[in-house]
């Protein structure tokens, strides 16, 4: 079974950085000022090693935006933030005049949209570069204890690998970190590798 090489990872990192650039541009259109979004690190995590440390998220509660996508290969994509960070992001995006109580009401809605923008931007960058296309479900946002969210990630017994992208997001001078994870089963991983190989060999 093939696994991702350095060159594959380099190609994927570039794909996600282009996705991050597109997402930042959409977000800045909404908040009306510059938004910085970068994906400095891409990490491959084996199912046995998936825990809070590998995700670099230390909080009892997490917020997760999920989309399932399918196409030449299928994957579950999830954007993860600690709950406090998620609220801060929503406040930055909505403007500071909003009260904390109101924020909680809007969190669900606003986080779905934020996750949708980032996940779609990354998927569409991948689709453009690898010349493939995906279908996707609508985003869903869940807030739960970190254990529950982690269990949902690893419950799929076919899970072969997790691609974890550490995200740096800056809105209105506030710096936030989160994680974008793609969960792939072994068939999907092989398909992904084949598509990147095809792309690289075409250069």
């Amino acid at each position: 079974m093939k696994t991702l090489s350095e060159l594959h990872l380099d190609a994927l990192t570039e794909v996600f950085n282009i996705g991050a650039g597109r997402a930042a541009s959409s977000l800045s259109e909404i908040v009306g000022e510059e938004v910085k979004l970068s994906v400095p690190r891409l990490q491959l995590v084996q199912p046995a090693d998936i825990n809070m440390q590998t995700l670099a998220l230390n909080s009892p509660r997490l917020g997760a935006v999920k989309q399932q996508f399918s196409g030449p290969f299928d994957a579950d994509a999830m954007l993860l933030f600690t709950e406090e960070r998620a609220l801060e992001i929503v406040r930055d995006m909505m403007g500071s005049h909003i009260s904390i109580e109101e924020l909680a009401e809007y969190e669900q809605d606003a986080m779905c949209e934020l996750g949708n923008i980032i996940l779609n931007a990354c998927l569409s960058a991948m689709a453009d570069i690898l010349k493939i296309s995906f279908q996707s479900s609508l985003p869903r946002y869940v807030v739960d204890s970190s254990d529950v969210i982690l269990r949902q990630i690893i419950k799929d017994t076919n899970l072969s690998i997790m691609l974890a992208l550490h995200i740096d997001l800056t809105i209105e001078k506030h710096h936030t970190q989160g994680n974008l994870v793609f969960l792939l089963n072994s068939t999907s991983l092989q398909e992904l590798i084949a598509h990147i190989d095809h792309f690289i060999s075409g250069i």
């Binding site: 909404i30 809007y106 809605d109 606003a110 949209e113 949708n116 779609n120 279908q135």
Partner: peptide, 10 residues
């Protein structure tokens, strides 16, 4: 060809 949401919040 991906689904998009626009929240009332934003």
């Amino acid at each position: 060809r991906l689904p998009v949401v626009l929240s009332n919040a934003l």
